[in-house]
Design a protein around this nucleic acid. Sequence first.
DNA 1: AGAAAACCTGACCAAATGGTCAAATCGAGC
DNA 2: GCTCGATTTGACCATTTGGTCAGGTTTTCT
Lengths: 215, 215
Amino acid sequence: MMTDGDTPAQGGTRTRIQERNRARILDAALVAFARFGYRGARVEQIAEAAGMSKSNLLYYFRSKTEMYKAVLAALLERWLAPLRTLDPEGDPRAELTAYIEQKLRFSAEEPEASRLFANEVMQGAPMIRDVLEGPLKELVDEKTGVLRRWAAEGRIRDVDPHQLIFLIWATTQHYADFAPQIAALTGRDIADPAYRAEVRKTLTALIFDGLLPPA
Amino acid sequence: MMTDGDTPAQGGTRTRIQERNRARILDAALVAFARFGYRGARVEQIAEAAGMSKSNLLYYFRSKTEMYKAVLAALLERWLAPLRTLDPEGDPRAELTAYIEQKLRFSAEEPEASRLFANEVMQGAPMIRDVLEGPLKELVDEKTGVLRRWAAEGRIRDVDPHQLIFLIWATTQHYADFAPQIAALTGRDIADPAYRAEVRKTLTALIFDGLLPPA
DNA sequence: AGAAAACCTGACCAAATGGTCAAATCGAGC
DNA sequence: GCTCGATTTGACCATTTGGTCAGGTTTTCT
């Protein structure tokens, strides 16, 4: 039996129906929050997109905020998973290329997730500040350490590792976050595998070899 | 005398009071729209931030939409001004360094403007699509031509010029748009001139010379 | 089958929101 | 200091929004 005032299956088992409906809601909510932000998104519209009544949606998530938090939580893991795979033992060029490719794939396959993350951070990260300052910072600290070691060993140039990571984040996410602008200027879309391959090639070339012609 | 149903001074002279109040409103609106997006921003809150009643604000801008459009219009010129200065006759390295510095300055001095622009584009650029496809595309086409010429002359490597521009946009705007994340991870702020100088140095080093150690 | 729990709905509500309007006040030029 | 348009206000309104609730329907388990 459900405890009073709790979301269904708060503490344990989850029905098949719950599994399905929660997933539908989270999908629809991701799209809505990514497009309009937390304030701008409308609960009823999310319910409609999820194929159910607003009342029923509020049966699964007791409030808009709770729904938003759930979407963000599901998002964060996928967002920072790629960085985890950066292997200190590997070859810098191969490792960073693989990392860039993973980030580009994320932009291509989950552009809404990328946009929602951007939106949340742009608003001051009110809901995920503790994640940024906690787990994310720890992970980034670890990986900047790796980059510093590579630099010390002469395997890469000695650049600020934070800024290298920011450069990779910025450029790869840009193709999801600013997709309409890119479409307007080039007619291309990162969802197109051919374009994604081109982008990865150009990006890695720029990052590794730079813009200036070989001396 | 004002034409019926028009915004004050629609067609001509603008009183000192109008000048001052319109400016106040646009400032407050920029902050609000940047933070919450079009839908999420609240007219009354903008009015309060501008130091006037909601009724009075609506005397200057007949609707939220009109106000939003005015903010965007004022924004766009400042956003794309730096690219205009890229001189085909100049030295590639000097020109691009200057461009990067201008974009970084914009991120430092007008982070809200950068964020609002990002927000609008992320939502599909509903209000400025025609600008992206028109004037912006023309300007970018012109400048990609310059980059292509530089490449043909062997003054820079032969990389896709669109992607080079996107890389510069993405990395420079990142410091404004994702400021909370950068603060959480590094404790720095692009508004700090010292940090801005560091960023410019690292960024240009990466872009021009790449990450791999000299052979 | 039948009971209990899970699931779903439509009516309803209080608060918030964008916007209108008539009237009061202010300010520059005569 | 008067006049007329520019400016400002507060009361008011229709609509939208997030959320509640009592009760009905379906699923599940024995």
